[in-house]
């Protein structure tokens, strides 16, 4: 998927979020570090342009909530979590780049609950590649990308890698 493809997906998701929730009242976006943050920022801009108002954006690092954290010898780098608003009674839109096993989303939901009691949590992802290990599904999907377990799906974004593209590559 190329730059235009990614942009079109995000534009559609922005409209879908607003349609499903009948506007942007009580909506907050929550980007999951690191890929989800850039996508959430882009969605924020698109939705703000459509509705002419600003949607709050939070950044969530789920490292401390991972279920494999105590088993891994080397600790993953910990980024900052930044949520400058209350989540109570909000509709939280979790944003991530790739939905795979669902474990990241499980961790993200546990983390969110520690910040308050959202009215609802919805999930937006750019790519759904299947192979779920937990009963989790996305509310907004950019593209379904059936892939084999031996492949890796890489999402490059301008903000991070200087180019917008989604590629499937052989797991090395």
């Amino acid at each position: 998927m190329d730059k235009e493809g990614i942009e079109r997906c995000l534009t559609r998701i922005a409209y879908e979020i607003l349609e499903k929730n009948k506007g942007m009242e009580n909506i907050v976006l929550m980007g999951i570090r690191t890929g989800g943050v850039f996508l959430a920022q882009r969605l924020q801009k698109k939705m703000s342009d459509i509705e002419h108002a600003t949607i709050p954006l939070g950044i969530l690092d789920i490292t401390l909530y991972r279920d494999d954290i105590s088993a891994s010898k080397k600790k993953p780098h910990l980024g900052e979590t930044k949520i400058n608003f209350s989540l109570d009674d909000k509709i939280v839109i979790l944003v991530d780049d790739v939905l795979f096993t669902g474990r990241t989303i499980r961790a993200a939901m546990d983390a969110l609950i520690d910040f308050g009691r959202p009215r609802m949590i919805q999930l937006a992802v750019l790519i759904d590649r299947g192979h779920r290990e937990l009963p989790i599904r996305a509310d907004y999907v950019g593209k379904n990308l059936p892939s084999s377990l031996w492949e890796a799906v890489r999402v490059d974004l301008v903000e991070k890698n200087g180019v917008d593209e989604v590629v499937i590559e052989e797991e090395t």
Binding site: D61, L78, E80, T81, F115, G116
Partner: peptide
């Protein structure tokens, strides 16, 4: 620096350890 924020949460606890 990333851990500073945890002490400002309403629930000051994460399950990492």
């Amino acid at each position: 620096e990333s851990f500073l924020e945890i002490s400002t949460r309403p629930i000051k606890k994460v399950p990492a350890l």
